[in-house]
Structures are given as structure tokens and as C-alpha cells.
Simulated assay, not measured.
Amino acid sequence: MSMLETRANAATFTGHTLTRRERVVLAELAEDVTLEEIATRLFVTRNTVKSQVRSVYRKIGASTRAEAVAWAVAHGIR
């Protein structure tokens, strides 16, 4: 199985799939940066990043940034 397939499989769980952008945002959350800095890096607004973060949290069952980052590490997204 290729690295790309492994990462795609890691982002699929309990019937929900993280979008490509959600995986990017989730990986960015692992860095010591603000949502504003993530938005600047991704050329979107802070509100867009907030919406994507909320969607990621809902899909993976996280309620904090630390939980989301731990999930990302455990599933090979970071």
C-alpha cells in the first residue's frame, strides 16, 4: 500500500471522511500557530479556518486542539 493510500485510509473512519482541506487544517493545528496564521498560510479567512476546524472536531470526536492533534498523530495525518 502506498503512502498516499495509507493517509487516505487513515482519514476515513466511522463513516466520515475528512476532506483534503480538513486534513491540511488538522496538520496545521499541530504547529504552534494561531487560526489567523493558518488562514494566512492557506489564503482563506479566519472564519473559514474556524468552520473547517469545527467540522474536523465533529468528525473525529474531538473537543480540544490537543485531542485533535493527538488523533492526527495516531492516524498518520501529521
Rank of each mutant, 00 (worst) to 15 (best):
V73N: 14
K59N: 04
I77Y: 06
T45V: 01
L4R: 15
K50T: 08
T17S: 13
S55K: 13
G61P: 11
V24F: 14
R78M: 02
W71I: 03
I38N: 08
T64L: 06
T45Y: 08
I38V: 14
T40N: 12
T12R: 15
N9F: 02
Y57R: 07
I38W: 06
V24Q: 15
L42W: 03
A68H: 02
V24H: 14
L42C: 13
T12Q: 14
H75P: 02
L26E: 04
E36A: 14
A70Y: 13
L18K: 00
A27I: 00
T45L: 04
V24I: 14
R20V: 02
G76D: 08
N9Q: 15
L35W: 06
R58W: 02
T48W: 10
V24E: 15
A62I: 08
T48A: 15
V25M: 12
A27H: 11
A66F: 01
R21H: 13
R23V: 03
I38S: 09
T45F: 04
V53T: 05
E37W: 08
T14P: 00
S55I: 00
I77S: 05
G61I: 09
T48M: 10
T64M: 04
E5A: 14
R41C: 07
A11I: 03
E22H: 04
G76R: 05
V69S: 11
S55R: 13
L18W: 09
M3W: 01
T48N: 11
W71P: 03
Y57C: 03
A62R: 10
A68Y: 09
A62N: 07
L29R: 00
L26H: 09
V73W: 09
Y57L: 05
L42P: 11
Y57E: 04
H16A: 11
N47Q: 13
A30V: 00
L29T: 02
E28G: 01
T45M: 04
H75N: 13
S55M: 02
S55N: 11
N47D: 04
A8C: 05
A72F: 05
L42T: 06
S55C: 02
V73L: 12
R7E: 06
S63Q: 10
R65E: 05
T64S: 15
A66M: 03
T64F: 06
T17I: 05
K50I: 02
A27D: 08
A66D: 12
T6S: 14
V25P: 00
A8V: 03
T19Y: 08
A72S: 13
E37N: 08
A70G: 07
V25N: 12
L29P: 06
R46E: 10
E28C: 12
L18D: 12
L18T: 04
A10P: 01
A66G: 04
T64C: 09
A62S: 15
T34I: 06
S63P: 00
R21N: 09
I38C: 09
T48V: 12
S51M: 07
T45S: 15
T6W: 05
K59T: 01
T12K: 15
T34E: 06
A72H: 03
R20P: 00
G61Y: 10
L35C: 05
G61D: 03
R58S: 07
V25L: 12
E28P: 01
N47P: 01
M3L: 11
R20W: 05
K50W: 11
A10L: 11
A72T: 01
A74G: 11
I38P: 13
A10R: 02
